[in-house]
């Protein structure tokens, strides 16, 4: 809507900071995970439908595209989960001090990467998603 009134500054004005980046990533991973529910639906419907349908979904999951998507979604889930807990802590009023917001922010980044690594270590320890 065109208007002569001044607009509040947006992303191109502010210096990039961890807290804003994590906020953006939280939204982005949320949207990505919502899109990822399509695979969840497909998997459940296939498991309900029978062996042939299930095998088709499994074959897709173990293709390089499927693996790439699963890898992305696994990290998105870990990040959204960890940062979601950070948000829930904020909802109780805890952790708004700037140093603490940075500390918990970096903790979320580290924890999401470690969790993702552990998940895929478990996958490959079982001999891969084949």
């Amino acid at each position: 809507m065109p208007t002569a009134r001044p607009l509040s500054p947006h992303l191109q004005i502010y210096r990039w900071q961890l807290t804003m980046v994590l906020s953006i990533i939280h939204r982005a991973t949320g949207v990505a995970l919502a899109a990822g529910t399509v695979l969840l639906i497909a998997l459940l419907l296939a498991l309900a439908a029978g062996p042939d349908a299930y095998q088709t979904v499994r074959a897709f999951c173990s293709s390089w595209l499927g693996m790439l998507m699963l890898f992305g979604w696994s990290w998105a889930l870990c990040f959204h989960l960890c940062n979601g807990i950070r948000h829930l802590a904020w909802d109780t009023g805890w952790g708004f001090e700037i140093p603490r917001a940075y500390l918990t922010g970096w903790t979320v980044v580290g924890a999401s990467l470690v969790m993702t690594a552990l998940i895929w270590a478990c996958v490959f320890a079982q001999g891969g998603a084949a």
Binding site: L81, G84, I85, L88, V123, G127, A129
Partner: peptide, 23 residues
Amino acid sequence: ALALVPLALWVIWLALALVRADY
């Protein structure tokens, strides 16, 4: 969100149990 914290962790565990599982 609160409900999904334990549920998501459990689903990750479930997904790992399904990695090598046939139909």
